[in-house]
């Protein structure tokens, strides 16, 4: 299937992946029996998801452990053959692993090491240069650029085993980007890193994207990564798509409440009885102490209530806020959030 330049960089239609998992029962007899005949159970890791990513987009791919994120990433990068469905990465069928495709993409996994363990980083880079067929002058120029961006400097002369986790990750990034891929699959790229290093990696991904226009699909357990990088998120759970849209929309859809925090003049002296009457339903009041009133209010009521409170109370300051994204994601995965309907893409 030929796809022209305006088509999506990544296209997934009704992707399914089932694994056959061996079933083992406890006990000696069962164990002996399993030597002869193995029983397996079909597990559906991805149960028919569809989405597409336009060139240059950074999309956050979210879901709890076991949701099917890594399986999907592996299908997209060509490591796994799907059970059913249609997938195109850069117009290629990924699992055919056409060298022309492999030269245009990269897969970075935070928990896996791709650089050779025992030799200086720069030697691994040189090997990657040869493998991906990067012309020497381009290589030199990109290496300089990546070295600057990631502040690799002296690190490149050390063997990988002597690097800290954060330093290693920076080198993984540089090594995986020397061939200037147009599509980046990032599987938990910041896992285990300290906050400073997470921020560095995050800034780097954003910078790489803006310089090269590379399409990026990112999974992460750190919502800070997603908030900083992704305007759009795709959320999956139990192998099905829960949400596909922009991050603010996710909040609106899954969190039916907003929080209102009000600081009162003079510590709110003498207002004790008036407040519950003004607010209305007592369950909206989260706390009221020392002149600060915290409310959790249905989205639709927020504007009206805020206006009423401003008109009737000696307000010094007011903050109307979305609940933290972590909390929303928690709600989504726990299945306590509002009904999920996928908006038309």
């Amino acid at each position: 299937m030929a796809i022209d330049d305006r088509s999506p960089a990544i296209l997934v239609r009704e992707l399914r992946k089932t694994y056959a998992v061996p079933e083992r029962e406890p006990g000696l007899r069962a164990a002996l029996g399993s030597l002869v005949r193995r029983r397996t159970r079909q597990v559906e890791a991805v149960a028919g998801i569809s989405f597409h990513v336009s060139p240059g987009e950074i999309v956050g791919f979210l879901g709890p452990n076991g949701a099917g994120k890594t399986t999907t990433l592996k299908v997209l990068s060509g490591l796994l053959h799907p059970t059913a469905g249609e997938v195109r990465s850069l117009g290629h069928v990924p699992w055919q692993r056409d060298p022309a495709f492999l030269r245009r993409m990269t897969l970075i996994m935070g928990q896996r090491n791709q650089l050779a363990w025992d030799i200086p980083v720069i030697d691994s880079f040189e090997l990657n240069r040869a493998i991906f067929g990067v012309p020497r002058d381009e290589y030199r120029q990109r290496l300089t650029e990546l070295t600057d961006l990631l502040e690799l400097g002296e690190l490149m002369r050390k063997p990988v085993r002597n690097l800290s986790l954060g330093e290693r990750m920076k080198c993984e990034f540089a090594g995986s980007l020397l061939h200037r891929p147009e599509v980046l699959f990032l599987d938990e790229p910041t896992i285990g890193l300290d906050v400073t290093m997470q921020r560095r990696i995050r800034a780097f991904i954003a910078e790489y994207n803006s310089r090269t226009g590379a399409t990026t699909l990112l999974t992460s357990h750190y919502m800070a990564d997603v908030e900083a990088l992704c305007r759009r998120v795709v959320v999956i759970h139990h192998g099905t798509l829960l949400y596909d849209g922009d991050l603010t929309g996710l909040v609106a859809r899954f969190s039916p409440h907003k929080s209102i925090t009000i600081d009162l003049e003079d510590g709110g002296e003498g207002l004790g009885e008036r407040i519950p009457a003004l607010v209305g339903p007592p369950e909206w009041i989260v706390s009221h102490a020392e002149g600060r009133l915290t409310l959790r209010v249905p989205r639709s009521e927020t504007a009206r209530l805020t206006t009423r409170l401003l008109a009737n109370l000696p307000v010094r300051d007011v903050i109307v806020d979305e609940p933290p994204i972590d909390e929303i994601i928690d709600l989504v995965f726990a299945g306590r959030a509002g009904p999920a309907e996928v908006p038309p893409a």
Binding site: P99, A116, D118, I119, D123, L127, R129, A130, I131, G133
Partner: peptide
Amino acid sequence: RAPGSLMEIYRSKFRSEIAVQFA
């Protein structure tokens, strides 16, 4: 791919592999 670039891969691999073995 062109045999020339395959040779280049081999050359690079030689170099890094010698370093590994030395370690």
